[in-house]
Amino acid sequence: MMVTLVNSIFGPNGALSLAHALSGALVLVSFMMLYQDRLSAVINVLALHSAVLGLAVAWQAWIQAEPQLYITAVIALGFKAIIIPLALHRIVRRLNIHREVEAAVGIGLTMLAGMGLVALSLVVMLHTAAHSAVLAREDVALALATILLGMLMMIARRNAVSQIAGFMSLENGLILAAAGAEGMPLVVEISVTFSIVIAFIVIGVFLFRIRERFDTIDSTALDAFRGELQ
């Protein structure tokens, strides 16, 4: 097992295999995020997710010989894998929500939906990208899977912090797709822009003490919010 793994990395198609392995790992970590039921665990998985992305982007920078991609990798490793998770942990402590278990949809159902989404994205992308380079094709398929799993996370969870985690994993999938598209310009600028958006979101949550997404079973509360209560 170990030997084949080593062979596949350093063998003739090694560069490809490692890129695929890292993209696959990203999807796997997205799944891990789906079944966490404690907020601090979600944040830790998010840090892992960003770290895997950082490695994947760094590897792409190496095999495509695109040095500017290292900036994106550093943003992923430094800002998204360390600074943001620390800030989120702080928010969780400040708002006193560490013990919150807050899935809006059951975990089993979420996992099933997740598997469906991954299958869907593989079928769609491998089919449509049949003419693209192998590297881009598989990469884009796995990136789409990560994006869809991120969206699922945002839908399935109610807490603002896990929504941020969902959005960041979605965005990690995007950066993976952008880095995998050979020679795509503006990737670094895009990753910087997204970091600014995330910083905005996190600061917003902190300043306004947003705990929950604004939906509730109690429809009178909803009507009151919409200004429609007579």
Binding site: S132, A133, A136, I147, L174, A178
Partner: peptide, 17 residues
């Protein structure tokens, strides 16, 4: 906006070859 960016990346992939 994230989905729009993914669409843009796909357009790039359609053009790149």
């Amino acid at each position: 906006i994230a989905l729009a960016l993914f669409g843009t990346i796909l357009v790039y992939l359609a053009a790149e070859p």
